Simulated scan of single mutants.
Amino acid sequence: MSPERLRSIVPMFGGGTSYVETLDAILEFVDEHQPTTDELVGWHRGTFARVSSRDSILRRVDYLEDVGFIRRAGDYWQLGPEGEAYLSDQTTSTLLEIMVRRNVGLRSLLYALSAGPMTIDEVSHQQLDTHPELGWNPSSPDMAKQRTNWLRSLGLVEKDGSLYSLTDEGRKFTDRAVEQWAGTEEASVSNAGDGLTAATYETTVVARSVDPEFRATVLSQHDGMCPVSHVDHPALLDVAHVLPWSEYPDHRADLGNVLPLSKTHHAAFDRELFTIDADYRLRVNPEFDTQSDILQRTIIEQAGEQVSFGDTGPEPTYLQEHNQRLAWLAD
């Protein structure tokens, strides 16, 4: 069984963009000396300026143990499995894989930033809206800053004034991650008894499986509701791509190219029974005939009506390109 993913991310000493360098130094010290706890605390005090609180040091040590970077061996500290994996090549890609696998919300933050720069308050709300199980006080920016600082240290995020945005490496990560992390086990993210949360549900019938954190990000941006049917149960929602997944790999992780649809409406959309035009009006295939009350009410009777997306609708140019492929849709 996979270990529980961590809700709290702890900063490293040494400054907001130096977390990786600090982690490297700690792991190299542990690997070489296998210190006791007192020796590890003393090393921190001798290495970093203005670090004296034992509790503050041990909070960081506990976090590194929870991730799996270090582990206790009797009275001593040794490298844990994640520490051994990282130090075996000490590449950013290995460290990034560990951090996004073991910590809730890092991937969803990168997906959200792919849509545009965010302030630290927007980062905080994005994380809590997408992962309510994080549970921190939304009025405090500290937890959001710790997350952005880890991503800055990894070279995926940069800060310009009050805005945080993706670097080129960050964009490369999001382009790969939506498929790379598809089907990953995320059941420990939430304490929900039925497991049917936005982050944990994996599509297996109609929709292509995507990274659960990408799925959670999409649902969060659309208030967890299908804009066509108004279905709002996460287990009944798919992530639908406007421009097809197989033909447009560069847009797989593009938040402007996706929307949440109920499983039935996703199937109907993919089978070209209805579409949404660039003005967000529902357009219905004239050959679509059904006796289903639900489909009559939510699709056929809504032909020509505006679909409400708020501020998070799909990119109109993507809808236009999608609709140019539909033989039945004539201006």
Rank of each mutant, 00 (worst) to 15 (best):
residue 117 P to C: 00
residue 10 V to E: 09
residue 14 G to V: 09
residue 42 G to D: 15
residue 317 T to V: 09
residue 230 H to M: 10
residue 139 S to W: 12
residue 323 N to R: 02
residue 228 V to H: 04
residue 69 F to W: 04
residue 258 V to G: 02
residue 281 R to A: 07
residue 21 E to C: 05
residue 310 G to Y: 13
residue 175 D to Q: 15
residue 275 T to V: 11
residue 123 V to C: 05
residue 149 N to R: 11
residue 57 I to M: 02
residue 266 H to A: 11
residue 69 F to N: 01
residue 143 M to D: 12
residue 202 E to H: 14
residue 54 R to D: 15
residue 106 L to M: 11
residue 192 A to F: 06
residue 204 T to G: 07
residue 214 F to I: 04
residue 231 V to E: 10
residue 246 S to Q: 12
residue 208 R to Y: 15
residue 140 S to F: 13
residue 85 A to N: 08
residue 265 H to S: 06
residue 214 F to H: 08
residue 130 T to L: 00
residue 3 P to M: 15
residue 71 R to M: 05
residue 202 E to S: 14
residue 303 A to E: 13
residue 41 V to E: 07
residue 78 Q to L: 02
residue 143 M to I: 09
residue 303 A to S: 13
residue 296 Q to T: 03
residue 176 R to A: 15
residue 83 G to N: 11
residue 319 L to F: 11
residue 289 D to V: 06
residue 31 D to P: 02
residue 330 A to L: 07
residue 137 N to V: 05
residue 61 V to G: 02
residue 181 W to M: 14
residue 286 P to A: 12
residue 293 D to G: 00
residue 96 L to Y: 02
residue 215 R to K: 05
residue 58 L to E: 14
residue 76 Y to N: 09
residue 25 A to Y: 03
residue 25 A to K: 01
residue 208 R to A: 14
residue 49 A to N: 11
residue 257 N to Y: 10
residue 280 Y to N: 12
residue 19 Y to F: 05
residue 279 D to Y: 11
residue 218 V to Y: 04
residue 82 E to N: 11
residue 106 L to N: 04
residue 184 T to W: 10
residue 61 V to W: 03
residue 119 T to D: 02
residue 288 F to A: 03
residue 307 V to M: 06
residue 44 H to R: 06
residue 26 I to C: 02
residue 125 H to A: 09
residue 112 A to D: 14
residue 123 V to G: 03
residue 51 V to K: 04
residue 326 L to Q: 12
residue 250 D to T: 15
residue 191 N to Y: 10
residue 280 Y to W: 12
residue 81 P to F: 14
residue 70 I to Q: 06
residue 195 G to L: 15
residue 186 E to Q: 07
residue 129 D to A: 09
residue 177 A to N: 11
residue 132 P to T: 01
residue 19 Y to S: 02
residue 223 D to C: 08
